[in-house]
Design a protein around this nucleic acid. Structure first.
Lengths: 125, 125
DNA sequence: CCATCACGTTTACGCTTGTAAACGGTTACA
DNA sequence: TGTAACCGTTTACAAGCGTAAACGTGATGG
């Protein structure tokens, strides 16, 4: 289904859809316009490609399409994550995590949350 | 210098070089042969492209080249990390870290080390 | 001295990506 | 009843990528 790779620009589109699906093309365009300077045609191309890749589906409502994600965000994240982990950190997840911990500013709450996750990891190992 | 993007296959080559530079082309080929099934010509193409991108340099030793990284691994990792963080997690580093913590099996030592990093983060905030 | 080998360089080629204009059909206003 | 506006579809096109063969040149063994 979706062992397909999603390109950089396509991710931007997918985030919009995962955040508020179902959405028509214009709704996607309107949302993206706030953050990107893409021509409408450009966004439509991406919607198309995403449908072809099987990541999106649409249903028709009159003359317009209503798009929904077909792949779940979590699954796509997992796939992209594995690939990045492998490519950049040679698969060493603790290196990856260490890197991002060091290069991020985290709030006290975030730090707490991460500590909790670590505790769980420890408990179940 | 190196705000250039390094492709997937190119990362594989760069890891080899960062791990043991300086290296001749054959040394790179020999190392990569253990993990990849690439023709020698393919690897040479990548070395070339990396030189053109400014990520690698070489010096000549007789008829052969000796390659060295020109960009530091840490810098490339930082760049690729930022880009991935943005693309997949919309810039939310704590989400990213949480994701990788949850999807990784970590040893007790690794968990300890990560806790320490968290402690430091907390201290300096 | 010639053929072969080893090196780096050039050329190749199909696919993906970013970016968008052009096109054909329908709808709605003037 | 045109005709402008809107929709989705097709076509475009240059750059990057994965993958590698072909080429020119200098060295080397017979």
């Amino acid at each position: 289904m979706a062992n397909v790779s999603i390109s950089d620009a396509e991710w931007q589109v997918m985030h919009v859809i995962w955040d508020a699906q179902p959405l028509t093309a214009q709704e996607v365009v309107a949302t993206l316009r706030q953050s990107h300077d893409w021509a409408t045609a450009t966004i439509k191309t991406m919607l198309h490609r995403l449908v072809r890749k099987g990541v999106l589906t649409y249903s028709q409502d009159g003359n317009r399409y209503v798009y929904r994600a077909r792949a779940r965000r979590a699954d796509c994240v997992k796939l992209a994550g594995r690939s990045f982990l492998q490519r950049v950190f040679g698969g060493e997840s603790s290196e990856l995590v260490a890197h991002f911990l060091k290069t991020s500013r985290l709030s006290a709450e975030e730090i707490d949350r991460l500590r909790n996750i670590l505790d769980e990891q420890e408990a179940q190992s």
